[in-house]
């Protein structure tokens, strides 16, 4: 089962490597990892997507919590949450395909951020599954290169 964990940690040199070292050292996997400063510059927030059964996820969360630099760990995929990933895709843009590329990215509400005589670079944002769908559709048209950010996620605000 896929889980999205949100980890607050002290923004200090080496703190991130404690987290990644924990995953490699204990044989847990990381599907994606995204990290940046929070509103408080002394604290970073890390969004981590991993897979495992209930027992493995419980171990991962407890092991993360045990790290001295970690402030808080939550499995936000347990409740309702929003997730977004951004992908930059450089498409072959030749006479026969230019129009089609534009049509597809329009459907996915993407936009062109760079143009060259032979390529378009497009930006698309969405859930991980939307990003995968875009890639699947664009692939046969001709993808030259893609860069993905990995998922960032946030639990939904309480409704009341």
């Amino acid at each position: 089962m896929k889980h999205t964990l949100s980890v607050l940690l002290r923004n200090k040199p080496g703190a991130l490597s404690r987290v990644t070292g924990l995953f490699s050292g204990r044989g847990f996997n990381i599907e994606s990892l995204c990290v940046a400063e929070t509103l408080d510059p002394q604290v970073s927030c890390l969004t981590l997507v991993t897979r495992g059964n209930e027992q493995i996820i419980e171990q991962i969360m407890k092991q993360l919590h045990k790290l001295i630099d970690v402030i808080k760990v939550s499995d936000i995929s347990e409740g309702e949450y929003v997730e977004r990933e951004m992908v930059l895709i450089r498409m072959k843009a030749e006479a026969g395909t230019r129009a089609e590329v534009l049509r597809v990215i329009d459907i996915f509400r993407g936009k062109v951020v760079d143009v060259s005589p032979t390529s378009y670079t497009v930006e698309i944002t969405g859930s991980e599954s939307k990003v995968r769908a875009v890639i699947d559709i664009l692939r046969p048209i001709g993808i030259k290169e893609i860069i993905r950010t990995g998922t960032v996620a946030m639990a939904r605000a309480p409704k009341k």
């Binding site: 040199p13 080496g14 490597s17 404690r18 070292g21 924990l22 050292g25 001295i68």
Partner: peptide
């Protein structure tokens, strides 16, 4: 040494 001992200490520090 802080990098080397990260997985075998409870915690470690480089005092900068």
């Amino acid at each position: 040494i802080v990098g080397i001992t990260r997985p075998c200490t409870k915690h470690n520090y480089l005092v900068s």
